[in-house]
Amino acid sequence: MTKQRAGLYTALTLLAVLFLIPMIWGVSSAFKARSDIFEYPPRLFPAEPTLENFRAILDGQPFWSWLLVSTLVALVSTAVAVFLCCLAGFGFAKYQFRFKNALFDVLISSLAVPFAVIIVPLFILLAVTGTLNVWFALIVPWVAPAFGIFMMRQYVEQSVPDELLHAARIDGAGEFRIFLSVVLPLLRPAVGALAVWNFLNSYNSFLWPLIVVSDPDQYTLPLGLQALFGAEGRQYDLVLAGSVLAAIPSLIVFFVLRKQLLDGLTAGAVK
């Protein structure tokens, strides 16, 4: 190994440690008693590790309800979003139709609409139409993300040969049928990526739920943790324990599907 190589590995390892420190510190602090979290000098390994924080948040707070809401919302919106994105991506990639360019332009433009612009009016519209609940407001408006459609279009162009479509048409298959039985199976790697991306976005989303959800029975995990922390008492101990637990599902999803995510996510951007 050359000197240069050694330097590269050292630098990357150092950087990796820097990236990991906050996470490790968070996990370690979750096992500390409230008054030890800020002890000086700081200890990486708690002198008296305790599970009390975890017990307190699981017993004293509706943690499972938060987790359930977050997970269900993320799963449902991911399932629908993946389907709609594949469908639209396929539509853009493999058909010629009038206004195609203009419509695609509109789609791409929507990437440049800042979310902060629509939050106030959208919030009001949902309030007035009585749809300001977690199931509608956190799912429906976001099930066709432009980024996902864009990504799927790129992927379809690269991986679905026209000949397959022609062959299917000659066999008399309808277009939707072709999508389901011919195209969708070919998209599996990208579907994985989009699904993880969408799941994580939904599971972790904060601003929109913060505005939309005010009923504590419908709190998502980030909201529950935020409310817990914001409540009188600023309970770092409980919130850290909750955070560690909250991060587990997203980390599992990420690690299981990491390869698909990292490869698939970039497919659209590179070409």
Partner: peptide, 16 residues
């Protein structure tokens, strides 16, 4: 490792 931070909820990250 470098990707993981974006996987974690911002509230968690901000707390830490």
């Amino acid at each position: 490792i470098f990707f993981v931070p974006v996987v974690i909820s911002p509230i968690v990250v901000a707390l830490v």
